[in-house]
Design a protein around this nucleic acid. Structure first.
Lengths: 342, 342
DNA sequence: TTGAAAGCGATACCAG
DNA sequence: CTGGTATCGCTTTCAA
């Protein structure tokens, strides 16, 4: 059922059918109606491959994120969902590519074979060969997250430095003096994940500013690791009264560890961090946290990408977001320690 | 950088380059080397659209799931991840389509425009127009879940009837007599979601068999709804001592409601259900549940689909899975009631 | 307002 | 073992 068939039955040429569909040339009301009628009868839809070949656009964007291996986090889920829906609004489909590095097969296919008009990259590293490669090629792409040198790139990112710092200040204001930091897994930190690095930086600097005693930890992306991590924290310094975490997947485990250790949240121990709101609200007590606005970020990334695809050569644009801390129920004044004068 | 360019530089015809790449015709070692050299130099990769147009295959499969609207559950996340990775093994890319019904734009595009070679459908309804439509068209597809008449279809599904029944028997064996059932949201039940219906059936029948007193509830896919639902349960029948749930996203809220009501799990109240293991392990106490083997299901769905794409006209195949209940820490003997003799 | 025909970049058949 | 060429289905320029 191709365009030729439609043309034949409608008694017009193929080009007329094409134009009737695209509206790029005026078509008399009568023939347009005739064509539409035939199309409806036969349920015709233009073949996407042929169209892509002819006009060089696939109407598809790639969503690139590292293979699960460990497991996806809830935040990633939220991003995927919001990107897909935002793309649908622009009539773009989304092709998933499980690629953590420029060299991944799937990533190479995406670009080399021109399967997509543009790409959104997740889980950005400070030095990210995917981002660099795409920039060199001038291939339309938007990063969720930013590299070490994001100056004139296209991205939407959370200000993890500021967010982690805000968490520290929140705890310091409550009188906490000995605070732990629970980061993403060691392996991701070493790979250079930007959120892990900037978060750690922000935490460390803010803690120094406030004169806090801190310890920092890496923690696997699952509940068991969270629990183990918490045991280590209390073992290393039983006087710890609070923690900040970027590790959403470990949250349940951290809570469990606290419960096991007989520390009541928030009475004896405060917990805060950077987490998507729906997950923050799943735990009890609900987590006081900087809520990751995943839906907004996904939408903005798509909007930027579409803009860039449609007018290449535009200068880089980006959004740096710093959501406020949502006060819920997991933090409270420090107890059992001398409270510095306020 | 197309195949013609490669042919020219290698001093051969385009067809030879094509055959050298596909191996569908023998090519002398010498010319093959020459061609490969040129390809490497220029970093050539065949254009996917052109290839798809010429040979009628896109090397892409569609993954169809309802738009988030509500929110995705962890289980859905796990499916998406496993499908993408399994597809990558077969060198297929995955196109996401947020479509709950046959009439959705994205779904129509997928099929009508021939964007994919096959599709995997999630969140199946007992009467599912997407499944029916695809079956009529003989379009290669595999459902994760099964309709009311799954006889000779292609699918992989959990036996929710048996799973819910197993949960009931587990609780009955522990002496529970008054048990609640927490289902997916009302709106999904009404839409005919098969897991919600079969789960409810299995629960109801098994409970009748064991002579239990039950109440069944629908519950939104989020923590707040879970908490509200639990309050309703205890309000409707304060003597309830256990619940079975299919609603992963509400789990945290159910636990919170229990804690608020002063019911200790598992001492005063038992909780069980059907949940992906990573989420079952996130809550405290860890949930005794029939673990949804999302990774396996995604992989199997992809394997079936690839098989079906590669040899159409094969008879339907399917896998009905009944994972065992993993004993963790959320269920215990009923107390405060007379224990029927064992 | 419409038609004819030349691409787009591969594949694969038909010859040699 | 290799080359020429029709073909896939659509878009778009050129002419009328």
């Amino acid at each position: 059922m191709n365009i030729g068939e439609i043309a034949k039955r409608a008694g017009v040429s193929r080009s007329t059918v094409s134009y009737a569909l695209s509206g790029k040339r005026s078509v008399s009301e009568e023939t347009r109606r005739k064509i539409q009628q035939v199309i409806d009868e036969l349920g015709y839809r233009p073949n996407a491959s042929a169209r892509a070949l002819a006009n060089g656009r696939t109407s598809t964007i790639g969503l690139v994120f590292p293979p699960a291996g460990n497991h996806y986090t809830g935040m990633q889920l939220d991003f995927i969902g919001s990107v897909v829906e935002a793309a649908a609004v622009h009539d773009y489909d989304v092709l998933l590519s499980p690629s953590g590095a420029d060299s991944d097969r799937s990533f190479q296919r995406l670009l080399g074979e021109r399967r997509v008009d543009g790409a959104i990259l997740m889980e950005i590293r400070l030095e990210d060969d995917r981002v660099e490669h795409l920039a060199e090629l001038d291939f339309p792409s938007v990063a969720i997250g930013r590299t070490a040198h994001p100056e004139n790139g296209w991205w939407v990112s959370l200000d993890h430095t500021a967010l982690a710092a805000a968490c520290v200040h929140h705890l310091a204001d409550l009188g906490h003096r000995r605070v732990a930091f629970v980061n993403r897994p060691e392996q991701l930190l070493q790979a250079g994940y930007e959120s892990a690095h900037r978060g750690l930086d922000g935490f460390t600097k803010a803690a120094a500013e406030r004169g806090l005693t801190v310890r920092t930890y890496c923690c696997g992306d699952d509940a068991a690791s969270g629990q183990a991590c918490l045991e280590r924290i209390l073992h290393d310094d039983p006087a710890t009264t609070a923690l900040v975490t970027l590790n959403e997947a470990a949250l349940g485990g951290l809570y469990r560890g606290l419960a096991r250790a007989g520390r009541h949240v928030p009475r004896d121990f405060s917990v805060t961090g950077v987490v998507a709101s729906r997950w923050a609200e799943t735990v009890t007590p609900q987590l006081t946290a900087a809520d990751v606005p995943a839906e907004e970020m996904g939408r903005r990334a798509v909007d930027l990408l579409v803009e860039r695809i449609e007018q290449p050569a535009a200068p880089g644009r980006h959004h740096l977001l710093t959501p406020p801390i949502s006060l819920r129920a997991s933090t409270g004044p420090a107890t059992g320690t001398s409270r510095p004068g306020t």
